[in-house]
Structures are given as C-alpha cells and as structure tokens.
C-alpha cells in the first residue's frame, strides 16, 4: 500500500497535469457553449504547460543562474523557456478563437454550438 502511495506521490506533478488535460478535453468535447470550449482548451493546454514546467524542476535545485557554490544543483531552464513559447502560442490561439466567436455571434446571433449548427440546416 505504501508503495502505491509513494508511486503516486513521486509522480504527483504528472497526475496533476494529466487531471488538467483530461478535464480540459472533457470540457471541449461536452460543453456546447463556444466560450466554454475555449476555456476547456485553455485548461487542457495549461495541463501540458504544468507537465513541462515540473519536468524541468529538480528537488532542491536553484534557479539556473551561476552561483559561487560548488555543490549547487540547477533546475533545467530549457523546458521553462520552451513552455514560454507555448504559452505565447496558446494566448494567440485563445485570442483568435475569441475573435472567431465574436464573428459567429455577429452572423448567427448565438454562441451555442447546437444553435449554430441548427441554423445552417437547410
């Protein structure tokens, strides 16, 4: 039993990221409101960011700035830099999605996916 707990705890970051990814995907798939879909997409991506960021962290490590201590352990900065890029991409995606929703609202008068689909039925 304790082994299982250790296993879960040792990978706590992964579990958290997985949970966020699943919640995000669930929202995207199940919610009919377009805003909620975008929010779901953001949760999903945040899960991935978390996964990257925690991956680079080393327990007891310090920020990757050279310090005058021979036994210093540095966190890996690369995943953090990468995810900075991914966050920028995510912001761009979100803004584009919101812009599209505005256009959809203008021409359909609704932000519900079902209503949008229904009003295009012949």
């Amino acid at each position: 039993m304790s082994e299982a707990i250790t296993f879960v705890m040792a990978h706590a970051n992964t579990w958290a990221a997985t949970a966020l990814i699943c919640i995000g995907l669930w929202v995207v798939m199940v919610r009919g409101n377009l805003f909620k879909k975008v929010i779901g997409l953001n949760i999903f991506q945040t899960g991935v960011f978390l996964f990257y960021i925690s991956m680079g962290y080393i327990r007891g490590g310090t920020a990757p700035i050279v310090v005058d201590r021979p036994d210093a352990v540095y966190a890996n900065p690369l995943p953090h830099v990468l995810i900075l890029t991914a966050i920028v991409v995510s912001v761009a995606t979100t803004s584009l999605a919101l812009a599209l929703i505005v256009r959809i609202r203008e021409s359909y008068g609704t932000t519900e996916e079902d209503d949008v689909n229904a009003s295009d039925e012949p």
Partner: peptide
C-alpha cells in the same frame, strides 16, 4: 459557415498540435 468551420478547425487543430 466559414467562420463556424474555422472555429471547429481551431479547436481540433489545437488539440492535435498540443
């Protein structure tokens, strides 16, 4: 319908890329 199609494309494309 192009806008609605683009939105769907965005959602699915983003999931794929992620």
């Amino acid at each position: 319908r192009a806008v609605a199609a683009a939105f769907n494309y965005l959602v699915q494309g983003t999931i794929g890329a992620t």
